[in-house]
Design a protein around this nucleic acid. Sequence first.
RNA 1: GCCUGGGUGGCGGAACAGGCAGACGCAAGGGACUUAAAAUCCCUCGCUCCUCGCGAGUGUACGGGUUCGAUUCCCGUCCCAGGCACCA
Length: 825
Amino acid sequence: MNPYEPHAIEEKWQKYWEEREAFRVDEDPSKHKYYLLEMFPYPSGKIHMGHVRNYSIGDVIARYMTMKGLNVLHPMGWDAFGMPAENAAIERGIQPATWTHENIDYMREQLKRLGFGYDWRREVATCDVDYYRWEQWMFLKMFEKGLVYRKSSPVNFCPRCQTVLANEQVEGGNCWRCGEEVIQKELTQWFFAITKYADELHEYCDKLPGWPEKVTSMQKNWIGKSYGVEVHFTLEDGSPFTIFTTRPDTLYGVTFMVLAPEHPLTLELSLGTSQEKEVAAFVQKVKAQDRSFRGEISLEKEGVFTGKYAINPLTGHRIPIYVGNFVLMEYGTGAIMAVPAHDQRDFEFAKEYGLPVIVTITPKDRELNAASMDCAYVDEGVLVNSDRFDGMNNREAIGAIIDYLEEKGFGTRTVNYRLKDWGISRQRYWGAPIPIIYCDDCGTVPVPEKDLPVVLPVDLEIRMVGRSPLADHAPFYEVECPVCKKKARRETDTMDTFVESSWYFLRYACADYQDGPLDRKRVDYWMPVDQYIGGIEHAVLHLLYSRFFNRVLNELGLVGVREPFKNLLTQGMVIKDGAKMSKSKGNVVDPNYLIEKYGADTARLFCLFAAPPERDLDWSDQGVEGSYRFLQRVWRLAAEHAGSLAAVTAVDQIPGAGGDEKQLIHKIHRTIMKVTDDVERFHLNTAIASIMELVNMTYKFVEKGMDGERGKALLKGSIEAILRLLYPFVPHIVSELWQTMGGDVVLLRSSWPSWDAELVKEEKVMIAVQVNGKLRDTCEADRGMGEDALKEMVFGLEKVQRHLEGKAVRKTIVVPNKLINIVCG
RNA sequence: GCCUGGGUGGCGGAACAGGCAGACGCAAGGGACUUAAAAUCCCUCGCUCCUCGCGAGUGUACGGGUUCGAUUCCCGUCCCAGGCACCA
């Protein structure tokens, strides 16, 4: 028997797969397709354990689905634009393009050394002109449709990265990438109109049963849909003053109004009043504070009276208008009605400035006293002081009051979203150029389609100056206006790299297509992605952008489906010593080291066995040893008997078999059933555990001595089942052993084993025997034994007798083939 | 504060639909083989108590409830992780 030498066999089989293009796949309408996708990596330099885990899970599913006979698309590519390439350029004087491509080449080799089966013909790198040229094309189409526009607005800016960030890319006031505190800056930039799809994106969250609820609820939360009403108050001169509220049931309790400092009316209202100076000073002061500071929930509520009043359309009351630091311009109308009795924020503000409190909702069990309240009452109750709505439950009142407002023309039912449009301009070099030209005479002119692509020059010096190096590179920005042919200037910002990752999964379907962005026919064959696998960190970023982008492309006629990802699996992080692996923590395990020490199969097996995919994986060096030991055990089992079993025909059932043979047959079939079921549900850790059990039992079978030819045939049947079941997890060692045993490796790749439902059942079953719900004994019985026979047998047991002593049996519960519980007392 | 998850041995984790809690693996302890070590194989392994047995009790964050029976269902509490958060 040869010893298990992972390196030699892994190299051998990787070469074999490569030479035969084993994972090449073509569109074949006669076969069922299965599109399996893992989130593509950023080519940062080398593969880390998170990738190994993600791609190991994916590879199991891809190989399993292939074995089941599906036509499996399993592609890989590179999210290749981004800042680290520029940083490398600044720090080491290497061109971003060179750095990126070198990294890609190295990482591609690493993926191959891990034995992942991809159709490499479909590889895409987003920094290649052949990729981003189509993104520019899409940008132009979106421009035509009004889905992309330019505006000046305060934006999130990271001083370290020297660029703008989308709202989704700010985490608790800090940059999602580098952690630097984000500041606000007024900039003109390009936006994708994702809010036009806010409602649909929200609604479809409930139509994605294949997604973890955690992710859809995070997306819903992010979109932040709230139902309410815009109420038209008026100023004393009769001009309109509209606010948004979700609580029209409290309209009779309004005692003041508050405007956001940025609201255009704020300064206007105070003009000519005694408050003018004070308001102006307040607005100045608030604007000087940065947004993360203003967002602090603990921030003291402050405000100033504007000098003007509004009229409540329901009551006709004259209500003072304030400006306040806690009202946001970006949400609703930038103005609110304040009901201190039933809103905690309003309550705090009212207390601070001595404003009145009017109770309009009372709880069922007590009276509220406006004068003595120490916090707002925000729960359900019955309306009071509310004219015709008195006595109504406040939940019902919401609808009733909205109806009344609409009838009278005082308001309009409205839905508000927290989601903002997606700002995509980045003042960075290493990204896809935005295909726009600015002309003094013609204004903003899109680059004509025939002039695409706008190629990113790859031969300029990269410096850290707070704007794109492209802005200093005349050969790029000096351009003639496509309309009037006069001198014009090209847009020098590039697109957010999340744009590239919003459609790469479509390009895989037709990566070589040259006549357009996507080959509809091929895209239609493969889409949607049947299973998407990646980290939870993209729950709102990438996954929301992709859903938006796919919809746009669907409307452009490029894709047939509305939702791109049918099923989503979010895998957990890889943890060591209680923290995520990171250079700064010094707890990184290098995949190269693992491959060298144990081989790729062991690395894969450990990642899959140590925890279920969705959970965080606690790294354990001893656990890796254990996985290695298991593979050695499998190796010995198969390799040792390969010779003596060469001439034997494998069987997995023997009519009339008994004893150990029967037990093993049963185990083989039950394991096949269990592993199939587990893999379908992504319970890969338990799938491996049950294969281990079968291996253990097969060893025992060998030790007990096989019964001649028949036993050998069964042993071979068991080993073959083990190898087949193990193939998706550890394909190198299995391929080698399969070949050693004289099997056809091509066949192996398409033969997931099936089980015989009859053989899964055991004829003898162990019955748990309980007295008053406590386990007292177990006994063996024939499957399907009648209740009476079973009772007779069980009542005869000594331990049962002992616990029944002196007690009367009240009843007996029998769960067929499982349990009997005798209730006595 | 709100929305998701989650809490099971020394550890990672099992238990699919309410029916033997702790599969599988790691670690630990004991033994076999060996001149020795490694490797391999065998045994023990939730906790407590005792008369050490074919023993008793107890045990899935905590407190209740439903049930013959609850890790699983219901109510309440605590803790941990992630997300959102003056969003009107």
